[in-house]
Write a protein that binds this DNA or RNA. Structure first.
Lengths: 232, 232
DNA sequence: CGATTGGTTGACCGAGATCAATGGACGTGG
DNA sequence: CCACGTCCATTGATCTCGGTCAACCAATCG
């Protein structure tokens, strides 16, 4: 069964043009894809370095990418996970404020930020699309802030699973978790141990089916009620 | 002394055109200010409602505004505080995802979002300015996320004070804290009691001078070291 | 001046971090 | 193909920071 879930991820949803971060169909963003150059990265490889000059943004074609902020004392924050169709790295000025790393072997499309600026200057629709992208990111960031400041460990895990499920295509299906427990912990502001315990709690309650690199929602209602503190 | 600090806020910095959220001098954003309509709001008044249709954005001319997300169970998150010169409410699509309330009696400039979109479509420089604004907000949001997920109570308070000090004009000066302890707590993901205790700790250590509506940095080095977990 | 609101301080408790040990998956070399 | 080693996930025991509950105090306002 482990294999089946993992396979269902590798087969993957048919890369929905521009996914979670994109605007509705016919987005002017699609014009950008034409200028993209394919990049292959191995598991764990750094794609952009925190503090480096921002020159490119990327679209995930396959695999999974995480953004990471690292502090001197080792405390780590995983900003977001990017799945096929998602764009990242466009939202930087001057220098990247987080590094980006491949969670698993991935294929990316690389787009010059200079191009983006130029095309946006010439095409108000594209500029507008980027404003919308920014606004959507801000909304997500605010939601994440509420989670980090006000939700319990169990609520965070439930929210995370629900989000991954909704991003991974249709409901009821097996959902892939390409990232390790440590990544999840650093994304949710928890420790690995607490992540494990909360996941185990949901598994034991029969809410989810769980394995190393994937899960399946067994009781949608229970999962929703475990989230509790949704933002309105 | 209480009076002196408070007075120094009311006299206030001379409203720096577009403050914390603006771009460098000569910003194309200034053109927008011409279309603004002056609005006076009393202390505690709701300026926009969470869930309402977004039609306007605002620039703070005097006073202080907070954005607030409220959950059914009463848990509250204060997103940000806006001081004179700051713009808020532009980063919404369709509906406001947080409400905005006056912390103290304030004067605002109200700008139609429809105008903003139109002017941005016609003026690439303005569109670019808004992209920069968005990117800057995202950077701040990410920093705040790190704080909420990884910093101790003392570190959060120290960071907050340092930020307020740097926003409130020149260093070494008395800094106003127009918002109450509850607002600070909900902004930092703490409780009122913990905010008090941490502030008291810094006061007793001689790091800051403290009173109800303001503070003063006495030991800049100690405050910086109390922050510890800066995002490198 | 009393009343109401907001700030401060103390005592206690609990969710989650920390420390420690074990188990299972995967990859490498014999 | 199996033995071993490494890495990661899991589980348990204990500790701690910050939340909760409660009392008191100080400002502001009628």
């Amino acid at each position: 069964m482990s294999a089946s879930i993992h396979a269902s991820f590798n087969a993957s949803r048919p890369c929905p043009a521009f996914g979670a971060l994109s605007q509705p169909t016919g987005s002017p963003l699609q014009g950008l894809a034409a200028t993209a150059r394919r990049i292959h990265v191995e598991s764990g490889a750094e794609i952009v370095a925190q503090g480096g000059q921002a020159a490119y943004c990327f679209i995930v074609l396959s695999g999974c990418v995480r953004t990471v902020a690292l502090m001197e004392d080792g405390r780590r924050q995983v900003g977001a996970f990017y799945l096929p169709g998602d764009i990242f790295g466009w939202d930087f000025l001057g220098e990247y404020d987080m590094s980006a790393e491949a969670v698993i072997p991935s294929v990316l499309g690389r787009i010059s930020l200079r191009n983006v600026e130029q095309m946006a200057d010439q095409d108000p629709a594209l500029a507008r699309a980027f404003r919308r992208l920014a606004v959507e990111q801000l909304r997500q960031a605010r939601e994440h802030m509420v989670m980090l400041s006000r939700m319990t460990a169990l609520e965070r895990i439930a929210s995370f699973l629900a989000e991954m499920a909704s991003r991974s295509g249709r409901a009821g299906q097996a959902v892939s978790l390409p990232m390790g427990r440590a990544d999840i912990a650093d994304h949710l502001g928890l420790t690995v141990e607490t992540v494990c315990r909360s996941l185990g709690q949901l598994r034991r309650a029969g809410t989810i089916g769980l394995e190393r690199h994937g899960f399946r929602i067994l009781d949608r209602v229970a999962l929703a009620s475990a989230r509790e503190a949704s933002v309105h």
